[in-house]
Simulated assay, not measured.
Amino acid sequence: MRVLIDQEKCCGAGQCVVAAPAVFDQGEDDGIVLLLNAEPPAELHDAVRQAIRVCPALAITIEE
């Protein structure tokens, strides 16, 4: 799995960080998503998929 983010779409809701804190973070100044791990290990795949589901801006995608 490869995680892709579109920072221009991000609204800073932070739901991705709640769902997968080992993969996502937020910028201190603007709250925009930061990608910590573009190729997370298998044990984090479900958390990444949850982050995709809860992202209100649809700013996260994956390539399998």
Rank of each mutant, 00 (worst) to 15 (best):
A51S: 11
I52Y: 05
A59D: 05
R53H: 12
I5N: 03
Q50I: 13
L44P: 01
D29W: 09
C16R: 01
I32E: 08
A57Y: 03
G31C: 04
L58D: 14
Q50E: 14
A20K: 04
V48G: 08
A47M: 03
D30K: 02
A22M: 11
F24M: 03
D25H: 08
T61E: 15
V54W: 07
G12S: 13
P21E: 04
V33H: 02
I60L: 11
P21Y: 02
T61N: 03
V23H: 05
G14T: 08
Q15A: 14
L36W: 12
I62H: 07
K9R: 15
F24I: 04
A20E: 10
G27Q: 13
M1I: 11
I60P: 00
L58A: 12
Q26M: 15
E63M: 14
R2H: 12
V54E: 15
C55R: 04
A51W: 01
I60D: 05
D29C: 01
A59I: 05
L4Q: 10
C55M: 11
K9F: 10
D46T: 11
D29K: 08
I5G: 03
C55H: 07
Q15R: 08
Q15C: 04
P21K: 01
A19R: 00
C11L: 08
Q26D: 05
G31F: 02
K9E: 05
